[in-house]
């Protein structure tokens, strides 16, 4: 049974490995380069001990590498792709009718279904593990500098990618078993998967728990945990934390930017009651947010898998 399951998903496993190899081929050279620049230019020492000129060293490193991996947004497709590919062989069994061959051999269908689902989910989780390891290694220097709270980082580290993969797999599988069309299931499933992923990321994740909201006068040091945080809103505001309208902000900026010293400009702005506003999720909430989002997607995946199993046991003959 295990041999058969493996043989049925051999092609899909090869495709997943190829996609992972492609990601590794583009990230590993860049990652090695970035790590050497990180230690050579003293960014690490700056972050640990501070010192003169450190601000610009760190800024230029961040500027240089934060968007260096142009491939990274594309890697968002990988958990979805892994889920689709590992779900496909089982859907094809129903599309081609070969489940009737399997169910009339000597293995009872409950055992057949258990083995197929277990191997499929284990393979998908293993591939996701490889992706997480690759991204986390690649991001070591960047995580030190800018943290891992922002989307495109948060989505690749910790535990949440496992839930994404399982959710994509379960969604495509459930659609595929009901429609018995692998291509339809892959297309509809992927669209629904991305809609939900992006929707939760844009509208829900920042409010899983109320974000921190800090207001402080310009020129004074802000809260220390705003570094490496996920910044949701920030900018010049009034004393009660309402963002200044852009026209007002620009007007004050032009007024105060009279070319004297930086200190003079800041004093001028303070005289106009300009404050800084930061609304953010601090880095300390990484695992809390990861846990909540993982729970959401894992629960959806479990419900979809249960639906698929129910359908196979009751509606397929």
């Amino acid at each position: 049974m295990i041999w058969l399951t493996w043989r049925l998903q051999r092609l899909e496993t090869a495709l997943v490995l190829a996609a992972l190899a492609l990601a590794a081929a583009s990230l590993i050279p860049l990652g090695l380069h970035m790590a050497s620049v990180y230690s050579a230019s003293g960014v690490g020492a700056c972050l640990a001990h501070g010192g003169s000129g450190c601000g610009s060293t760190v800024d230029s490193f961040q500027h240089r590498f934060e968007h260096a991996g142009a491939i990274i947004p594309w890697l968002n497709f990988l958990p979805g792709l892994i889920g689709v590919l590992f779900a496909a062989p089982l859907i094809l069994d129903f599309e081609h009718g070969t489940f009737r061959f399997a169910w009339t051999q000597s293995v009872p269908r409950n055992r057949w279904l258990t083995v197929r689902l277990t191997v499929m989910c284990a393979a998908a989780l293993l591939a996701t593990f490889a992706l997480i390891q690759l991204m986390t290694w690649f991001r070591i220097p960047l995580d030190h500098v800018s943290g891992r709270m922002e989307p495109n980082v948060f989505d690749f580290e910790g535990i949440v990618p496992y839930a994404y993969t399982l959710f994509a797999l379960a969604l495509v599988l459930a659609i595929g078993i009901v429609t018995r069309r692998a291509v339809t299931a892959a297309a509809v499933g992927l669209i629904a998967y991305f809609a939900l992923r992006v929707g939760i990321q844009i509208w829900l994740r920042k409010d899983f728990i109320a974000p921190l909201r800090k207001v402080w006068p310009v020129g004074l040091p802000g809260p220390s945990n705003v570094d490496r945080a996920w910044s949701i809103t920030s900018g010049p505001s009034d004393a009660s934390g309402h963002l200044l309208p852009p026209t007002t902000a620009n007007h004050i900026l032009a007024l105060c930017n009279n070319g004297s010293t930086k200190q003079g400009d800041l004093a001028c702005m303070r005289a106009h009651h300009v404050f800084n506003l930061a609304v953010y999720q601090p880095a300390s909430r990484f695992w809390l947010l990861q846990g909540i989002e993982t729970a959401i997607f894992a629960a959806l995946a479990a419900a979809l898998l249960a639906t698929a199993v129910w359908w196979v046991r009751n509606r397929v003959s």
């Binding site: 049925l8 081609h96 009718g97 070969t98 009737r100 061959f101 009339t104």
Partner: peptide, 12 residues
């Protein structure tokens, strides 16, 4: 029991 379903499905 031996069974061959309609269209004799096999793993292509």
């Amino acid at each position: 029991l031996g069974f061959v379903a309609q269209e004799h499905p096999l793993y292509r």
